[in-house]
Computed example of a mutant assay.
Amino acid sequence: MKIGLFFGSFNPIHVGHLIIANHMAEYSDLDEVWFVVTPHNPFKKKKSLLDDHHRFQLVLRATEDYPKLKPSNIEFGLPQPNYTINTLVHLKEKHPDYDFNLIMGQDNLYSFKKWKNYETILEHYEIYVYPRVSEKKEAPELLSHAKVHFVQAPIVEISSTFIRKAIKEHKEVKPLLPHTAWIYLDEMNFYK
């Protein structure tokens, strides 16, 4: 089975995440997309993150109606801060018959060479890239790399940062969130 790994803090997960993941599952050769909920991104400040368990719950609820989309808390048990290469190695050990691949926004190709062991990732894993509106320019050699595949997914410019700020300002954000995730956020009074 060919699995696409969609890493993120999902703080919170929003409809843009679902649109991209579903598009990858339906319009590429990936069989499933796993939302890998990241406990702590080495490039982000931890204080703005909801508790790991709550972000996983949001993803779990948001994906329950989509058989090809799965939540994953695989990184919760790994030493922190964690790096993608460690997760990939761990997943391969745990699921040797699965073919794991990365999913990332086109803007992330710009900083991909800063990732720990990025050469090893490129050597052993394929990368599925969705378009993003960005001023950043990708590294030219990555654009034509044999392991990098561009998927013409819809461009969705919704950000979790915008949603958190809007909730704090008492704005209506329900249309930006999967319904079940919105209910959980509202019940738990998150980001207010």
Score class of each variant (00 low, 15 high):
Gln106Thr: 09
Ser48Thr: 12
Leu5Val: 04
Pro79Glu: 10
Pro81Glu: 08
Pro67Lys: 03
Leu69His: 01
Val89Asn: 09
Asn11Arg: 14
Lys165Gly: 10
Val15Leu: 13
Pro131Gln: 12
Leu49Gly: 04
His54Arg: 11
Glu126Ala: 13
Ile158Ala: 06
Arg164Leu: 09
Phe35Gly: 02
Val59Ser: 01
Lys192Ile: 02
Gln152Cys: 02
His53Lys: 15
His17Gly: 06
Tyr191Leu: 08
Ala153Tyr: 06
Tyr125Ser: 14
Val33Phe: 00
Asn22Gln: 12
Thr84Ile: 15
Lys116Phe: 04
Glu172Tyr: 14
His124Pro: 08
Lys171Asp: 12
Lys45Phe: 09
His54Ser: 15
Pro42Lys: 05
Ser72Arg: 05
Leu102Gly: 01
Lys113Arg: 13
Ala25Arg: 00
Tyr118Leu: 08
Glu187His: 07
Pro154Phe: 15
Val36Phe: 07
Ala153Phe: 07
Asn41Met: 06
Ile3Cys: 13
Val151Phe: 03
Phe6Tyr: 15
Val36Ala: 15
Asn73Met: 15
Phe7Ser: 04
Gln106Asp: 08
Ala25Ile: 01
Gln106Ile: 10
Asn73Ser: 15
Ala146Met: 12
Lys113Gly: 05
Tyr130Glu: 13
Leu18Cys: 10
Glu32Met: 07
Ile158Tyr: 05
His17Phe: 06
His170Ser: 09
Phe7Cys: 05
Lys192Gln: 10
Glu64Val: 01
Asn22Cys: 01
Phe190Glu: 03
Glu141Pro: 10
Ala181Val: 01
Leu91Phe: 11
Asp107Leu: 14
Val133Trp: 14
Pro71Phe: 05
Ser134Pro: 02
Asn11Val: 12
Ser9Gln: 11
Lys2Val: 02
Val129Leu: 12
Pro79Gln: 12
Leu5Arg: 11
Glu169Lys: 07
Asp31Leu: 12
Thr161Tyr: 04
Ile121Leu: 11
Val156Ile: 14
His145Thr: 04
Pro175Lys: 08
Val156Glu: 14
Glu157Pro: 02
